[in-house]
């Protein structure tokens, strides 16, 4: 379409080097958790890297909770909305979600397509992301309004977008993940790979591995469809607790081993078993050729 046109969105996007869309046909497979881990891992990959995370799940935003910035507000500046910085003063991990715009956490956002479309346009055009090395975009389940609008608005940055598909290993989830893959093919969105989440659970008492939601499904799908397999992440209760209670743990920060002012979440994340596994996943992006 109008690639060469100078729009507010294309101006903002021109400062972003890589855009990563995290998607999955199915809900609750860990898109937000993978998006968060991806952002945290990229964040720690180099001391100067700047990462943004945009949550376009408008009716069920989870990113604020996971990054421990629940209840923060967005400020307006002369140059657009200021995103919430999860790492406070460092300002290298910017975050934007509809969750920051709600008066109360339990307020529902009951919007039909056109309204959602307008919100996504604002997120891309009005947020003052600044210079970013990576923008990770967390999407809602399905292949509908949000996804179509997102890709439409991202068209000025066509050459810098890639997707990662998250699935869990059971058949019911794989069918939806397959739909998501068909979607990416229909819209010509390059898929960097498939992540198999919740693949096995290690019993804390006896160490026995249980395949709570079966196992190997994502890998099998990647093989059949000729898409790179980025790895299998087991259910990590430490990670679940960390992302679930981000805020509470941060609040208690003064008494614990993490000094005030430091970005505690990323330190704690590096201690979880998932962080080590995720290191391999992130290498895929670090190997991408740099773009100006």
């Amino acid at each position: 379409m109008a690639v060469s046109q100078d729009t507010p969105i294309s101006r903002r996007l021109s400062h972003i080097k890589h855009i990563i869309i995290v998607c999955s046909g199915k809900g609750g497979v860990g898109k937000s958790s993978v998006a968060t881990q991806l952002a945290l891992s990229l964040y720690t990959s180099s001391p100067n890297v700047r990462v943004g995370i945009l949550d376009i799940d408008l009716t069920g935003p989870s990113i604020p909770r996971m990054l421990g910035v629940d209840g923060h507000g967005v400020h307006q500046s002369s140059d657009g909305w200021v995103p919430v910085y999860a790492d406070a003063s460092d300002a290298r991990l910017a975050c934007m979600s509809v969750g920051f715009l709600l008066k109360k956490k339990s307020d529902s956002v009951v919007w039909r397509g056109p309204k959602k479309n307008a919100m996504i346009r604002q997120f891309l055009g009005d947020v003052r992301w600044g210079e970013l090395d990576y923008l990770v975009i967390d999407t809602p389940p399905g292949t509908s309004d949000e996804h179509l609008s997102l890709l439409e608005h991202l068209s000025p940055a066509r050459d810098r977008i890639s997707a990662v598909i998250v699935t869990t290993p059971q058949a019911v989830a794989l069918i939806d993940a397959m739909k998501c893959l068909s979607f990416t093919r229909a819209v010509n969105l390059p898929v960097l790979g498939i992540v198999e989440n919740m693949s096995g659970y290690v019993c804390p008492c006896c160490g026995e591995v249980s395949n709570v939601f079966s196992t190997g499904g994502g890998q099998e799908m990647a093989r059949k469809e000729g898409v790179p397999f980025l790895g299998a992440l087991p259910v990590d209760t430490e990670l679940v607790a960390l992302l679930d209670a981000g805020e509470a743990m941060r609040g208690e920060g003064s008494g614990s081993e993490i000094p005030d002012g430091e970005f505690g979440l990323v330190k704690r994340y590096q201690g979880t078993p998932s962080a080590r596994l995720f290191g391999n996943v992130v290498n895929v992006w670090e190997d991408l050729p740099p773009r100006s």
């Binding site: 019993c203 709570v212 209670a245």
Partner: peptide, 17 residues
Amino acid sequence: FVCPNCKGESQIFRPTT
């Protein structure tokens, strides 16, 4: 979650709140 091996119960999705 009740482990089929040791029958010990653990919380995969912990009710932190």
